[in-house]
């Protein structure tokens, strides 16, 4: 089975202090640590597991700057066979729609039985690239995929609904599946794997290789355009509890005691 996995190189912002840059339209990326998008990590792992069971190939594809190579290397070390990076200054400002167009221009020329993507990009994710790409390719799709069983020509898929409920559906292959976190447990990369991956080639493509025009990508080719970023107003302001750890602990205990919780 030949599988394509769409991966995005994103900044980890859970613990980072974010500053809106001078343009007011983006966050200052300096000092942020980038890695494979959390959801794509699960997608790649799922692809590699299928390959290990059934044979075939796994190709990781990304649109991003040269820095994205570290994410592609990680994919190669995990078991991807090939990697493609689409890089062009004209791609900047692409929203989910333009992103899907770029991915489509390349994927439509490749052989695949299955395409895996993440449900969403953890940075500025719109949760949209996967289904748009599937529509462009004319193949069925499913998002929020929590479980996947392959049979001949079809995939049985559990989609997560709200509150822990799931639905099981069946889609015909080839299909695009956008996976949720928790579908598997992504493996750690061995040192040997990383060494071996350094030798694998990353294929680099630009706008000229996609057959798309400048007007079809970037901000011009997008549905949405960022006007401004701002820090969300707080719904309420928590009262700070300060002091040494012991003092903080004592204050929390007082609080709990006053409410009869201890």
């Amino acid at each position: 089975m030949d599988i394509i996995v769409c991966v995005k190189h994103v900044p980890d912002t859970a613990e980072a202090e974010l500053k809106i840059d001078a343009s007011g339209k983006a966050v200052d990326k300096a000092g942020l640590v980038y890695d494979i998008n959390e959801w794509d990590d699960y997608a790649l792992e799922e692809a590699v597991r299928i390959k290990e069971k059934q044979g075939g190939t796994v190709t990781a594809i990304t649109i991003g700057s040269e820095d994205s190579d570290s994410t592609l290397r990680k994919c190669l070390a995990r078991g991807a066979d090939k990697a493609i990076r689409l890089t062009d200054p004209k791609f900047a400002g692409s929203d989910s729609y333009a992103t899907a167009k770029i991915l489509h221009s390349v994927i439509k020329t490749m052989h695949y039985d299955l395409i895996l993507a993440g449900l969403q990009a953890g940075d500025d994710g719109a949760t949209a690239v996967g289904p748009i790409l599937a529509e462009m390719l004319g193949i069925p799709h499913a998002t929020m995929v929590k479980k996947l069983e392959l049979a001949t020509g079809t995939a049985k898929v559990n989609r997560e609904l709200e509150g822990g409920l799931e639905e099981q559906i069946e889609v015909k292959l080839p299909a695009l599946l956008a996976v949720s976190t928790g579908i598997n447990e992504p493996r750690y990369v061995s040192i040997m794997g990383i060494r071996k991956a350094m030798q694998k080639e990353i294929k680099i493509m630009t706008l000229a290789d996609t057959g798309l025009t400048e007007a079809e990508v970037g901000e011009q080719g997008s549905w949405t355009r960022i006007e401004k970023l701002y820090v969300p107003p707080a719904e309420k302001q928590a009262e700070p509890v300060t002091g040494t750890p012991d003092e903080i602990a004592a204050k929390i205990v007082d609080l709990l005691r006053s409410r009869g919780l201890i």
Binding site: S96, A100, A128, I132, A134, E135, M144, E162
Partner: peptide, 24 residues
């Protein structure tokens, strides 16, 4: 809704009809 249903449907419908989409 930006729910398990809307997320599955909206982008695909938007792409099929070339209607601009904004999510979540």
């Amino acid at each position: 809704g930006h729910t398990s249903y809307g997320v599955e449907l909206a982008p695909r419908l938007a792409a099929a009809l070339s209607i601009p989409l904004a999510t979540d």
